[in-house]
Design a protein around this nucleic acid. Structure first.
Length: 197
DNA sequence: TACGTGATCACG
DNA sequence: GTGATCACGTAA
């Protein structure tokens, strides 16, 4: 069952740990169905977080983050990579959760074709890898996550607190002391995360 | 460890 | 307009 929008209006830490971690991300793009279990993610917290794109206020790129939760924030970076986030919280609170790694579940042959490699463990173990595998790009920026192109389904059993690994976010050294915030979460022991915590 | 690659943003 | 930067991935 699709995760309803109301779930994404809750506290971002609660959403990250109890709603999104362990949930399944689906895409049906170009008529091809793919899905993967979310095993790693990071929090970006609006105007109190130097690492967040919304830290300095609203711009054309980050505008979707200022909308109400439950839509996709997809942006393009390093001249070649698309990054997929879930917008969290109500209108005006620009919080987002970056999906960093998936355990491939459905459409693995499609993912292999899109990524051009054959190793299941390397298909979705990074934020820019999983967007390629799932067929997600900036044209999906702002899409409603109850849509029939990209959506999320709850974990059958939530991830227990003891099973959650906590670390600092990747690639945000520019954020100064905010780079040390423990806002990266992963499922302990997963072979599909982007980098050991 | 180095660099490709192009949108974005802060400056004028 | 222009230049520096970037929530990464790959090869080496």
């Amino acid at each position: 069952m699709k995760i309803p929008k109301a779930e994404f209006l809750k506290d971002p830490f609660v959403v990250a740990r109890t709603v999104l971690l362990g949930a399944t991300l689906y895409s049906r793009i170009g008529g091809r169905l793919t899905a993967g279990r979310i095993v790693e993610l990071e929090l970006y917290m609006g105007n109190c977080d130097r690492a967040c794109h919304a830290f300095k206020g609203k711009t054309q790129r980050n505008a979707v983050m200022f909308e109400s939760g439950g839509q996709a924030y997809v942006y393009f970076v390093y001249g070649m990579h698309n990054m997929f986030n879930v917008v969290i919280s109500d209108t005006g609170q620009p919080n987002a959760i970056l999906i960093r790694a998936l355990e491939p579940l459905k459409g693995i042959d499609i993912m292999i074709a899109r990524r051009g490699i054959n190793d299941t463990r390397n298909l979705c173990n990074g934020p820019a890898k999983l967007t390629v595998a799932m067929g997600i790009s900036t044209k999906h920026n702002g899409i409603d996550l109850e849509s029939d192109k990209i959506w999320l389904e709850s974990a059958t059993t939530p991830i227990a607190p003891m099973e959650i690994a906590i670390g600092t976010r990747i690639g945000v050294e520019y954020a100064g002391e905010d780079a040390a915030l423990p806002w990266r979460f992963a499922i302990k022991g997963s072979k599909f995360i982007s980098k050991a915590i």
